[in-house]
Simulated assay, not measured.
Amino acid sequence: MAGISKTSIARKVAMALSGLFLVLFLLQHFTINFTSVVSPSTFNEISHFMGTNFVVQALLQPVLIAGVVFHFIMGFVLEIRNRNARSVKYAKFNGGANSTWMSRNMIISGIVVLAFLGLHFYDFWIPELVHKYVESHPDDPYRYYDETIAKFAGDPIRTGLYVLSFVFLMLHLLHGFASSFQSLGAKNKYQEGLSGYKSGTSKFIRKFTTAFAIVIPMGFVFIALYHYFNNL
C-alpha cells in the first residue's frame, strides 16, 4: 500500500484493477441472485455450493473483502490528493463545464455504495456466520431462498434502501467502469480525438461500460422489487 501510494499513475492503475475485480464479482453476484427470480431450486443449489465450498469461503471470500477495502481506501486517497493538488479553489472551479456529475461526485456515490455494503453484510454475511458457526445449525441446502425472500417481504424500508443504493451504484459505475479502462491505457488509436468522447476510450468500451453500468444495477433493483411485490 505504501509503495502504491507514492505515484499518481500507480494509484490510478491500482484503483482501476481493484475496480475491475469488483465488477467481475458484481456480475457473478447478479447472476446468482437472478436465479432466485427464475428458479428457487437453482438459487438454493448455487448458494449452498458457495456457502460450503472451502475455496470460496476460505480463499475467495477474504480476497473479495480485501479488494473492497483496498478499492475504497484508494478512492479516498485519490480524492484527497486530487483536492489538495488543485491550484484553483473549488469555489472558483467550474467543474460542470468539463466533467459530468458522476465524475465530480465519485466520492459521494462511493460512500453510499460503501454504506450499502455495510447493510448487505449486516443482512446476509453476518447472519450466515451466526447460523453456521455460532448457533451451529445442521446443514440445510434448501434454506437460502426462503431466507433471502424474508429480507424483502413486507419490508418497504429495506427494499427502498436497496433500490436507492443500486441507483447510486449505477451512477458510480457510469464513470468509474469506463475510467478503469482509461487508467489502464485502453484507447482507440484510430478514433481517438474523433469520436467526441473526452475520456479517449473507444466507442466499444464506452458503450459496453455504459450498458453494464445501467443493466446490472437495475437488474438488482428488479430482483429486490420482484421479491417485495411478489410476497406482499
Score class of each variant (00 low, 15 high):
63 V>I: 11
115 A>T: 11
32 I>C: 07
49 F>Q: 12
225 L>F: 02
85 A>S: 10
213 A>Y: 04
12 K>P: 00
22 L>A: 07
178 A>G: 03
182 Q>M: 12
141 P>M: 05
193 G>R: 04
69 V>I: 07
57 Q>W: 00
140 D>P: 07
10 A>N: 13
126 I>N: 10
73 I>T: 06
54 F>G: 05
23 V>K: 00
107 I>W: 05
104 R>V: 09
132 K>Y: 14
131 H>V: 10
129 L>D: 15
175 H>P: 04
138 P>D: 11
175 H>W: 08
223 I>Y: 03
156 P>F: 09
225 L>M: 11
86 R>I: 03
59 L>S: 09
42 T>W: 13
200 G>K: 07
163 V>I: 05
121 F>S: 12
45 E>R: 13
180 S>Q: 06
36 S>T: 02
14 A>T: 14
114 L>V: 07
200 G>S: 09
145 Y>E: 15
63 V>T: 05
113 V>K: 02
84 N>I: 12
15 M>Q: 11
138 P>G: 11
152 F>T: 15
86 R>L: 08
141 P>W: 07
130 V>M: 13
176 G>L: 01
189 K>W: 06
105 N>Y: 02
72 F>W: 02
42 T>K: 03
177 F>E: 10
31 T>D: 13
72 F>V: 00
119 L>E: 13
116 F>D: 15
125 W>P: 14
148 T>S: 03
97 A>H: 03
46 I>M: 04
194 L>K: 07
144 Y>M: 08
120 H>Q: 06
105 N>T: 00
214 I>M: 01
90 Y>G: 02
49 F>E: 06
10 A>T: 11
175 H>D: 11
71 H>T: 03
170 M>A: 15
155 D>P: 09
11 R>C: 12
